[in-house]
Amino acid sequence: MLTIRDLHVKLEDEDKEILKGVDLTVEAGRVHAIMGPNGSGKSTLSHVLAGREGYAVTQGSAELEGADLLAMEPEERAAAGLFLAFQYPVEIPGVGNMTFLRTALNAQRKARGEPEVSAGDFLKLVREKARTLKIDAEMLKRPINVGFSGGEKKRNEILQMAVLEPRMCILDETDSGLDVDAMRLVADGVNALRDAGRGFLVITHYQRLLDHIRPDVVHIMADGRIVRTGGPELALEVERNGYAGILAEVA
């Protein structure tokens, strides 16, 4: 599904290398988790995959089902099936949530040569998904993320994911700022989407999310590289002992 090879990334305006050779493959139907200390490059990886400006790829490749992700515009990556749930979802006053989501869904469908979804069908779809995520219908009428609490913003990311049905989902710390019940809702939302054709890359600092979304593979990222890869037990080790042991081992 997602194949990243020897990816090196630096800041466009500065000679600062952030990703120093990332290798990672997420297979369809599998959930991979990435953990790692603050500043190790997890969000940078997710941004570069989604196509954010400001970074320069100096070496390596990233492919989504064989297509060169790095050659595409952000909207093309989305239409190709990539989705990033932001660590910090953006507030956009003046643009309604529903308008935005419908524009996004229909733009993606158009890019894929699929028919647009009618206003009525769209409303039904969103209402149903919102209900399972316990997102208030009134909230959807508001501008994008404006006045949403931290947890509401994260749930809104998952709602967008549920509506857009991407093939490759990257979740950047979607659990941070969530209370226990909200974490459960988010995890249920993710689990509902798990199927044989879809891959997940879940960035998190906490084992707790991984109790609900059971990962197949866990990676540890440090200083711009994946330094350890293992099974779910790796996350438990981090939870118990922190990163010191692991980092000392690879140093």
């Binding site: 954010r52 515009e73 909207e75 990033l84 953006v90 643009v95 524009t103 996004a104 857009l164």
Partner: peptide, 25 residues
């Protein structure tokens, strides 16, 4: 707002349409 523009595009809204949404906003 470059971050807002990226957010919209990352959801599949083409650049021009995203700019229009932000200007109208």
């Amino acid at each position: 707002d470059a971050t807002a523009l990226f957010y919209l595009r990352s959801r599949g809204v083409p650049r021009d349409a995203a700019v229009t949404l932000l200007v109208l906003s």
